[in-house]
Simulated scan of single mutants.
Amino acid sequence: MNTIPPRLDHLVLATPDLAATVAEFTRRTGVAPAPGGAHVGLGTRNHLVGLGGCAYLEIIGPDPRQPAPAGPRPFGVDGLDTPRTITWAICPPDLDRAVVAARACGYDPGDVREMSRRRPDGTLLEWRLTDGGDPHPSGLVPFLIDWGATVHPSASGLPVLPLLEVSATAPDPDGIRPLLAALGTGMPLAEGPVGISFTVDTPNGPVTFD
């Protein structure tokens, strides 16, 4: 059984303390995530690790260099006590067409909006993504992203830890599978508390994160 979701773009590991989580990730894996950049106005910053192919891991947390944002930080960062794999993203061949198709199947991924950030070297990255509309509260249903003409983060010289598997648990897996199918993807799901788990191959051996 393939445990890597089709069209996986990235996994989102959110944390209340970015520096501490990056240090712990480095300790466990033997590989230091690369600085990604700040989400100006949103109060967050990220570090990235390639997962092989065109997929990567985003570690995101509050940016102490920015003032507090007007609204809540993305991915529920403000409400976290510990790091957690909060959600994931897929990259369909045609984002707009994928949104239309999902709506036709009964799931609304939300409207598409534009975002950007600058890498530490000053390069501007621009992308489009669905804002979630009325997302499943579990975070197990991915948002959609389109990098357009921007060089994909996985092709920007990131350190790479090959992704071995991704899985999730939910109290009602059968309620989530049709939503994943509407987006043209899937995730190995089992019954249990809400959560996403992934395992990467590292210089220290396979390491699993929740």
Rank of each mutant, 00 (worst) to 15 (best):
G192C: 11
V151E: 14
T82I: 10
A149V: 06
P159K: 01
T3P: 02
G195L: 10
G122F: 05
P188C: 08
P69H: 05
V207W: 02
D134P: 02
D174H: 12
R177A: 14
G192E: 10
V194Y: 07
L57E: 02
P137E: 06
Q66A: 13
T208Q: 07
A14H: 07
P178E: 03
L140F: 10
L11G: 03
D94A: 15
D201F: 08
G36C: 06
G53V: 02
T185L: 00
T85H: 04
P193E: 15
P67I: 06
G43H: 03
P69K: 05
T26K: 07
P74M: 13
F143L: 09
L179D: 09
T85M: 14
Y56P: 00
R118C: 14
L51S: 02
L125H: 01
G132L: 09
V207Y: 02
M1P: 15
P83N: 08
A32T: 14
P74C: 12
D81A: 12
A68D: 14
L140K: 04
V100T: 13
D121V: 00
S156D: 13
G175C: 08
E126D: 08
A149S: 10
A181I: 00
D108S: 08
G184C: 05
P153Y: 08
P74A: 06
C91S: 15
G71T: 12
P153S: 11
L161V: 08
P62V: 04
L140E: 05
G139V: 03
T199N: 01
C54E: 10
R45P: 01
V100I: 12
L189V: 10
L144G: 04
D78R: 13
T169D: 13
T29G: 03
A34Y: 04
H136G: 07
V194I: 15
S154L: 06
P162M: 09
P69C: 11
F209Q: 09
R113K: 13
F209I: 08
L57F: 01
P16L: 05
G76I: 11
G195Y: 09
F143C: 06
A101M: 07
V160R: 05
R27M: 09
L51A: 00
S167F: 09
D63Q: 11
G71S: 12
A20S: 15
A168D: 04
N2A: 15
G205P: 10
G36W: 11
L48D: 00
P5K: 00
R65C: 05
A155G: 09
L158Y: 03
L183Y: 01
G61P: 01
G50V: 00
P62E: 03
D17S: 12
V166K: 00
V141N: 06
I196Q: 04
D96L: 10
P135R: 05
D9E: 15
Y107P: 06
A23E: 15
G71D: 14
P153A: 08
D78A: 02
R28F: 01
D63I: 05
F209M: 06
I4G: 03
L48Y: 00
G205M: 11
D81S: 12
D81R: 13
